[in-house]
Design a protein around this nucleic acid. Sequence first.
DNA 1: TATTGTTATACTCTATAACTATA
DNA 2: TATAGTTATAGAGTATAACAATA
Lengths: 152, 152
Amino acid sequence: MPKPAAAESGLRASALTDDLSFLLARANAIALAAGNAALSGHGLKARSYSVLSLAAGEARPSQRELAEFLRLDPSQVVSLVDDLQTRGLVERRPDPADRRANVVVATDAGRALASAARESARAAEERVHAQLSDEDRQTLTDLLRALAFPED
Amino acid sequence: MPKPAAAESGLRASALTDDLSFLLARANAIALAAGNAALSGHGLKARSYSVLSLAAGEARPSQRELAEFLRLDPSQVVSLVDDLQTRGLVERRPDPADRRANVVVATDAGRALASAARESARAAEERVHAQLSDEDRQTLTDLLRALAFPED
DNA sequence: TATTGTTATACTCTATAACTATA
DNA sequence: TATAGTTATAGAGTATAACAATA
């Protein structure tokens, strides 16, 4: 990793350095790049990993629920699920309670991949957040959760 | 703002809810949407606001420095500066010390717009982060800065 | 009438490579 | 030989509207 250019240090004193939204964007860009790199060996990206991971859980989400939770447009979820389904990682099952809705559920292969991918993602996060203490990391997680789910 | 769907609460218990990268992505998406909405009245988005804001400061950044600081490709900075320059908000000045480099500096109109836009952005952030105490907000800012600028 | 999933489309963003002028 | 800016382009991501099936 290159050291910051000398002239960049002038920008470090700029107004943006105290701007929560800017810091959020930059930290997210760094974490996203590291996450995508860590997941690429599994044929996944952050997006598809999120969908797969949720499908592998107990929640049995519909596509609409996935879209809301991941802040994606429903039409984006269609193509993410299409891709995962083509690769045999998830299935669409009609919701018995509402025949309009598809419940997305991981196959055995999907659950296996999700758990392997989770290990890689965790290792990558470890590297990105290595400079934070366990306590800081927990604090950060709690504060971010408050921003990410403001209805609480 | 709609209340969360009942079925979404199942997803709230999922593995992703403890995933720092996921929370970062979701919080960023929320802040970005609010920021872009707040800036649209000024004809700006988060990206162009960042460039304008840095050009309005004391740092006199080159395009390359802007690209590194904002984690953008240099070619993206070209079109952002093009747009701002067309609107008379910034100028490109040749760097006397390196004639390859353009220093990007705000015009009077650019500085005025930057400062008006900063007010709007701050008000929007206030709304997004209203549920955090001042102390929590400061803690979050410091922790995010550690992630966003890991070389420190 | 409203909602779920889907398709289509247009637009923005991102990433890459190649070129020029300078260093 | 390397770097700053630029151009071009292709791919990914985003947003919107419309439609069929179902509620």
